[in-house]
């Protein structure tokens, strides 16, 4: 049994929305709503979902870039930022992040080697050592140090800049790297190169990845496990092959059927899901997906489904998959139930 490196427990983040001038009611966007999961050491967990489902917020909460409303991050069995737990500054070294926008994540006034060596210097590495290390890392990510170390970000291409961002993250010698849409902005050929580089580095540095993406192909390629999020909650989670081949949640199935097929015979005109995601300020009652789900019954609008295993490590939050949930006996009159609930 491989050890669990990162545990996320009941993480919650509600963003306050500026209330109407005349209304006293304080409203909240339910960005991340009570999610818990484990990340196994040495494996890649892919997080997928539509835009606005809370993927990036989850990443930023784990990275401690914003405070969570409640919940805990446990790293190697130690609570991060807790008394008697892991100090935040030491945690920073162990967990690093690569952002989507390769240009915005590099300081335009610093050279590449200055950018990479800044982090280690914060952690009391001497300037000379940090620069030597930066040169080594540049070579590791496939950039000639003699050519690139003294350049500025605007002199690099998108793929090269993202390699620099990866090198900057690796300079801390981290155990976990969060890749927040790290390849989304690159074109396909460069994307493939960077993904292969990430695979090689993972093996070499014994890394664990949290790979956030909306691109299901890419997630399939790089992940060992996959987690599907919808409106701030986990709807399905499990080994990637199992989830992709035997998706249990109607939302996951809809997402997977939305992948464009390479086979012209399989071209489809039908949209897999209708409508837009509901307003996260007033999420639907019960199962949050029920108002877009073709299988929804009365119980879906009234009872929140819990994450339950369908197979050993494959969990899903859907009443349809749990014989004891009462889905089979529930009436199909969703309209009445949801109309009553949304009020």
């Amino acid at each position: 049994m491989t050890p669990i490196i990162l545990q996320v427990r009941n993480l919650k983040k509600y963003f306050p929305v500026r209330a109407n001038l005349f209304s006293r009611e304080q409203k909240f966007v339910h960005a991340v709503d009570d999610i818990s999961f484990n990340v196994t050491k040495g494996r890649t967990l892919g997080i997928v979902g539509e835009s606005g489902c809370g993927k990036s917020t989850t990443a930023r909460l784990i990275a401690n870039l914003m405070p969570a409303d409640s919940g805990a991050i446990i790293f190697n069995g130690e609570g991060v930022g807790e008394i008697g737990g892991l100090e935040l500054k030491s945690f920073r070294k162990k967990l690093q992040m690569v952002f989507q926008d390769s240009f915005a994540s590099l300081n335009p006034r610093l050279t590449i080697s200055e950018t990479i060596s800044y982090g280690p210097m914060v952690h009391d590495t001497s300037k000379e050592d940090a620069h030597l290390q930066a040169h080594d890392l540049l070579a590791k990510v496939g950039l000639d140090p003699d050519l690139f170390a003294s350049r500025y970000p605007h002199e690099l291409s998108g793929g090269q800049r993202q390699r620099v961002n990866i090198a900057r993250a690796l300079a801390f010698n981290p155990e976990v790297v969060i890749l927040d849409e790290a390849v989304a902005a690159l074109d396909k050929s460069v994307q493939a190169q960077v993904l292969n580089l990430l695979q090689d580095l993972k093996a070499e540095f014994e890394l664990t990845y949290l790979f956030i993406s909306h691109d299901l192909h890419v997630v399939h390629y790089i992940s060992d496990d996959v987690m599907v999020m919808y409106l701030g909650q986990i709807v399905e989670m499990g080994p990637v092959e199992q989830v992709y081949s035997e998706a249990a949640h109607p939302y996951t199935r809809a997402l997977l059927s939305a992948i464009p097929s390479m086979d012209p015979a399989h071209r489809t005109q039908k949209s897999p899901i209708t409508g837009d995601p509901p307003n996260p300020i007033h999420p639907p009652s019960g199962c949050r997906f029920h108002d877009r789900c073709e299988h929804a019954r009365a119980i879906c609008a009234s009872l929140v489904p819990a994450l339950m295993p369908v197979q050993s490590s494959h969990v899903v939050a859907c009443h349809m998959n749990h014989p004891s949930s009462g889905y089979e006996t529930s009436g199909s009159d969703v309209q009445y139930a949801s109309a009553g609930a949304t009020r």
Partner: peptide, 13 residues
């Protein structure tokens, strides 16, 4: 608000 400030904060500086 730019990412390189976030990245710098991630360094623990």
């Amino acid at each position: 608000k730019l990412d390189y400030i976030e990245a710098a904060r991630m360094s623990g500086a």
